[in-house]
Structures are given as C-alpha cells and as structure tokens.
Amino acid sequence: MIGDFDLLHRDEPFDPFSVVLFKALQAIAFLFFIALVIVSPKAKEGKVDSKAEFLITVDWPDGHSDDLDLFVQDPLGNIAWYRRREAGFMVLDRDNRGGANNFVEVNGRKVLSVARQEMVSIRGIVAGEYTVNVYHFAALTGHPVPATVTVQKLNPTVTIVAKETVELGGGGMERTAVRFTLDAGGGVTGTDRTAKSILQTFYNHRRRGG
C-alpha cells in the first residue's frame, strides 16, 4: 500500500490557511523575479563598442596584383600602418596585400575576394592636422595603379570630407592623398593636398637613434 512508503503523513492536520499563504508567497516571489529580469540591462558578452568618428579608405582596381598600403598620421605624430595597426585613436582594420592575401574567411571557409581596399578608422578626436598617404609596396604588374582615398566623417551624419585619386607609378613610391584639420569638437576646418612624406618620419627617427 502507498502508506507503507511513508509518502503521506496522515497524522498531520490539514491547514488551508497555511497552504493559501504559501501559494501567495510563491506568486509574489515569481512576480519579483519577472520584474528584475525586465528592469536589469541585458549583458552583451564579447561586444565592444567600437564607435568610429572618421573612416578613411583607399581603393584600387579589383583583382589587382599590386600591394598598396595606407598610412595615416595624427596631430600627435602617431602613425597607423601595417606594422602598427593601432596608434592613438586610429586603427588599421584591414591590411590588403593585393594578390598575396586575396581570401576572406566566411563561416570557417576561405572565399576568394577581388576587392582591393584598406581601411583606417579614427575612434576619438585629437585636434590638429591628419595626413593620409598611399605607399606602393609591391609593383608586380609594371603599370601605374590609380588609388582612390576617401575620408568620411561619420557623426552625427555621414559626410564626405575628401575624395582624391592618386597614381602610384612603381614600388617604393609614396603619395599624399589628402591632409585635413580638425578642431577640438571634431569639425573639419580645412583640407589640402600638399605633399608630406610619412616614411621620412621613420627615417628621421632612425637617424636620431630612436
């Protein structure tokens, strides 16, 4: 019989008030839990706010074998390039090596990409002049390569600060695409294309023994 397993305690009196009170406490606890879930902010694990203020890109013909590099120098002298992908507030988001790394990974598989683009994002404001140069790292085709540099201001709305095309005629050539100046609030106060060598900065640094 079921009474032999001591699952029911027949000797204990039944108290309906205690049962009602217990159920009420359960309901209150459940409602409190629901309210806590609604009010508490949802955790977003692994998500980093990478808000950018400016986006600088260089594009050259799709499928081209030559390797072009984007160099960006900020007013403090920081330089974002393929050997220093994070410098100050600047980040080189992709180093495109022309025909040498024309694959991107999609869902764990390597997919051929013909796009030729490098991109630097600026994620904070430093007042002063920025210089954007393009360097012809490897000339495999033996022909001049047109490179289009676009500078976009992203906030509060996307606007094009500058869009310039320069021609790279051989390995080792460096060209200034644009120089632009920001005020303390991130407003663009001027642009020009006066040539300025960023590579010379490295050479001068070595001569000083830095």
Rank of each mutant, 00 (worst) to 15 (best):
N133I: 02
I198P: 11
E86V: 14
G170Q: 07
L7C: 08
L76R: 14
G172D: 06
S40L: 13
N78S: 10
T148W: 02
V134A: 15
L68C: 11
W81L: 07
F30M: 04
G171N: 01
F32Y: 05
Y203V: 14
L36N: 09
V120G: 07
F32P: 00
L25D: 02
V161F: 05
F89M: 01
L140C: 00
R85I: 14
R207S: 10
Q200P: 00
F89K: 04
D6E: 12
I198D: 02
V58F: 00
E45V: 12
N155T: 13
L68Y: 00
Q152T: 13
E53L: 10
E53G: 04
Q200E: 15
H143Q: 15
T159W: 00
V132I: 05
E53S: 09
R94Y: 12
R207F: 06
H136I: 01
G77M: 04
V37K: 08
H9S: 11
R207K: 08
I125V: 15
F32Q: 04
Y130L: 03
A147H: 02
E45I: 12
K44C: 01
L36S: 12
L55D: 14
V132Y: 05
A147C: 14
D11S: 11
K110E: 11
I160S: 10
V48L: 12
L55A: 15
S18C: 00
V72T: 07
M1A: 14
L140V: 09
V149Q: 09
D59E: 14
R85L: 14
H9M: 05
V48C: 00
T131C: 13
S18V: 04
D49K: 09
A24E: 10
L154G: 10
Y130W: 07
P156L: 06
A115Q: 15
P61N: 01
D4Y: 01
E174A: 03
L68D: 12
M173E: 15
R175N: 06
G186W: 03
R84F: 00
R84A: 10
G169R: 15
T189H: 01
D62S: 12
A162T: 05
A27C: 03
P13K: 08
A138E: 12
S40M: 12
A52E: 14
R116M: 11
A87Q: 04
V158D: 02
T176I: 03
P146G: 07
L31Y: 00
K47I: 13
S40C: 08
I125P: 10
